[in-house]
Write a protein that binds this DNA or RNA. Structure first.
Lengths: 165, 165, 165, 165
DNA sequence: TTTT
DNA sequence: TTTT
């Protein structure tokens, strides 16, 4: 029985282009590095910045979208969970990794610079959508341009259908 | 294209037993009322309590679980989104409703009183009907009594070793 | 005693310029309207968009920043809580309002156009400035961590009450 | 400048009693270990459990409350941020730690066994800081245009900078 | 209407 | 190491 809530919400910028690989079963797995910077005052009253670099992991459909649309510098909202892993390297040393398993993402900004997309994906849930047989794919996906939705304009075209006030 | 994030996270107690109805398509729709109380100090330094009563709506599988396991007084974690609705009553007056559409719930406490379950359910593809017939109409998907919590299915895509965990 | 969690996280765009007023005590109160749009498939499989308009309320320092930097169309992350209110109008009719009381905001987008600032209200916010360029990061597949001074020791050598990071 | 959102929300049980230390300045620092367990179906359809152990760090007032009220097995809601740290041990080996810096906690369950409390603490030390004197804000933004109903007017309740709710 |  |  599931027991507990493990939820992470991040908004930040990618430090580099994401990398997408595919499993033998054809599922996309995308890795990315996301920075969040916070500020606090130290005891002298000076502002101190601190940046955390989060290792993001995307699986399935959301991994495909992340691999296709996210780029170095992209600002993105991600939601997921924390996963801690421990590996023993070839040198016998233990290594610890903390990953953010992304369930949902939303590209931000979107001023014709690639932002604007959004996606909600289940981890590894691309089977129902994909009827194509599993196929190997090059590890570097060709850069594609998102045609960002132009629905960012909130002019007068919101008549009042859904506006309850 | 989805544009934006609309997320609500609540922890509170139910003010009454939830009510479950079923759509003509057989989808469960559960309503419940949840209280969250916050405290703040007024300018005299006195603690002031304020309670918000949230109208929760559950759909589909999570609605079945909510209807079965939640009771008046139950402490629960819910996650979902806000939905504002406007209806015109029979008297011609407009009425406004704000509902929390619950995507995920987690029963809390649970010291031998039924708590402890958890569930993640999708919002059913069917919109809830205001006057759903009280009887069940099993068509393509009859309401099920499923005690197992929903969980993500990784499918066959996890058949190999490319996954870095 | 506080009892419960009432948390809202929104990412969306403002439908209009925010409005700022000041209380007699000199506290800023800013109101804004924020849209979040979601998509779902109806039973015919067609994508249906639905937009929720959230009434945001900011108080104090975060209200000043919101009033100064947010504009119609601004994309923003906000975090806060839901508050339901009921008023009786001069016509004797009851009116219901649902507001999002914003505790924290973060301007999004902001590639040199004024966006990018962030603020945490009351609990020590900072005034937004120019957005910083995306941070660089090492490309080694080793664990990516912030290279912070190693003097961040949490032993017994806390100098004073300041947080040592 | 703050840039990004780094937010973690956890609900789980403590694996052991928390430990509280005090800095030279008298600030409490509490450490605790919290488990969150999730379930997913593997490819054979069997339920697979996975538990993450989160290292919680509390500072200041919330640390005192955590140290006083939390115990092994306690169910708790915590909200905070992720912090990655890297230390070089006395053996010259680098060690990586991931901590959840807790800003807010809420004890759950609590049917007469000590649970039920709640706390929101600032990371900024436990000194009872007196609020700064209220300051007027006659800014460039011209006030007026009251959209709220009269009964909603904040009026004299705004004698100072306190939040009016 | 809950809860402490 | 928790919990169910």
């Amino acid at each position: 029985m599931a027991r507990g809530i493990n939820k992470v919400i991040l908004v930040g910028n990618l430090g580099d282009d994401p990398e997408t690989k595919y499993t033998q079963g054809g599922m996309a797995v995308t890795s990315a590095s996301l920075a969040t910077t916070s500020v606090r005052k130290d005891r002298e009253g000076n502002s101190q910045e601190r940046t955390e670099w989060h290792r993001l992991k995307f699986f399935g459909k959301v991994a495909e979208i992340a691999g296709e649309y996210l780029r170095k510098g992209s600002q993105v909202y991600v939601e997921g969970s924390i996963r801690y892993d421990e590996f023993t390297g070839q040198d016998g040393q233990k290594r610890y990794y903390t990953d953010i398993i992304v369930d949902q993402m939303q590209m931000l900004g979107g001023r014709g610079d690639g932002g604007g997309g959004g996606s909600r994906g289940e981890r590894g849930g691309d089977r129902p959508q994909r009827s194509a047989p599993p196929q190997r794919q090059p590890q570097e996906s060709a850069p594609r341009r998102d045609t960002a939705p132009a629905s960012r304009d909130f002019g007068d075209d919101f008549a009042d259908d859904d506006i309850p006030f």
